[in-house]
Amino acid sequence: MFELYNQIASLFSRPLQQLAYGWEHLPILFAFFLGLVGAVAPCQLTGNISAITIYGNRSLTYKVPWLHV
Rank of each mutant, 00 (worst) to 15 (best):
N48H: 08
S13A: 15
I54V: 13
N48E: 10
T61K: 15
L29P: 00
S59N: 10
I8S: 06
A31R: 03
L26Y: 11
Y5A: 13
Q7N: 13
V69A: 12
R58W: 11
I54R: 08
F30T: 01
P27I: 01
I28Q: 14
Q17N: 05
P15Y: 00
V40G: 07
I49H: 07
H25V: 01
E24I: 03
L36T: 03
L34E: 13
T61I: 10
E24P: 00
F2N: 12
Y5C: 15
P65L: 11
T53L: 15
A20M: 03
A31G: 01
G56S: 11
G56H: 03
G35H: 05
L11I: 13
K63F: 04
I54Q: 09
A9N: 04
I54P: 03
Q44C: 13
K63I: 00
L11N: 06
W66Y: 07
Q7W: 07
A39Q: 07
M1I: 10
L34W: 09
H68E: 11
G22R: 08
I8W: 08
Q17M: 07
I54W: 05
H25K: 08
I49R: 09
S50C: 10
G47L: 05
W23E: 14
Q18R: 13
S13K: 13
T61M: 09
V69T: 10
L11D: 08
E24W: 02
V37P: 05
A9M: 04
H68G: 00
I49G: 08
T61Y: 14
T46A: 12
S10P: 04
N6M: 08
L29D: 02
N6S: 15
I54K: 06
S10G: 15
P42D: 01
A9R: 05
Q18A: 14
L45D: 01
F33R: 01
A20S: 13
N57Q: 06
T53D: 12
L45K: 04
L16P: 06
L36H: 01
R58G: 00
Q44M: 13
L29C: 02
M1E: 12
N57F: 09
P15C: 00
A9Y: 01
F32C: 04
T61V: 09
Y5S: 12
N6A: 15
Y5N: 14
P15K: 00
I52Q: 12
